[in-house]
Amino acid sequence: MNFTLKIWRQKDAKSKGAFETYQVKDISADTSFLEMLDILNNDLVHAGKEPVAFDHDCREGICGMCSLHINGLAHGPGQAATTCQIYMRKFKDGDTITIEPWRSAAFPVIKDLVVNRGAYDQILQAGGYVSVRTNSVPDANAIPIPKADADESMDAAACIGCGACAATCKNGSAMLFVAARVSSLAKLPQGRVEGARRAKAMVAKMDELGFGNCTNTGACQAECPKGISIAHIARLNREFLAAKIQD
């Protein structure tokens, strides 16, 4: 298969970027999207040009490192998959593919398609944890947890922190990301203890970092590679409002 690629190139955070067009040829349908970029990059290196910088690591959809806005969709075509899990058979021979970095004020571009998602770390540092010390804990089976609760907690905990939610949201809102963590811990007795403090602190940090406001479009849920439901946003709203009303 042959493709025309329109890729966003930007030297560094300060420089202005622009699209450049590349051709890739003889790509097998079984090639993954990132392998296709590897092939392009190898060609570029041989031509003495700088390869396209893009984030990636595990290439099995779990580390959350890969990003890319492909043909207008975060993580490209196909639902519940990260960019690294997209295979070229999803495209048609001869397609033009536009590849852009995550665009969000809170995710500034570092180079080409690489962005800084440190804001997500900062939100979690504000309260996305249970304050227990190593070794100062009860037996694992001391507190039974209803299976349904543990399962729902796990649904939310599947978040890989890739940033697709904020990148795809027309409002640049990180609510799905924040909600996933708040909700996951809120469903467990261990996390309940500091639930109110957590919800307030994480929302405050999210706002401070310049993420937008959720308007319930559900685009985040549609583009989340882990299919995390906006029901967790409802729970975050509940947690936050209950905490604020008690203040």
Binding site: E100, S104, A105, A106, N171, G172, S173, G210
Partner: peptide, 13 residues
């Protein structure tokens, strides 16, 4: 707020 959160550079597609 939301407009500013989207950043200055918009998606082309």
């Amino acid at each position: 707020n939301n407009y500013r959160a989207r950043g200055t550079q918009r998606y082309a597609v």
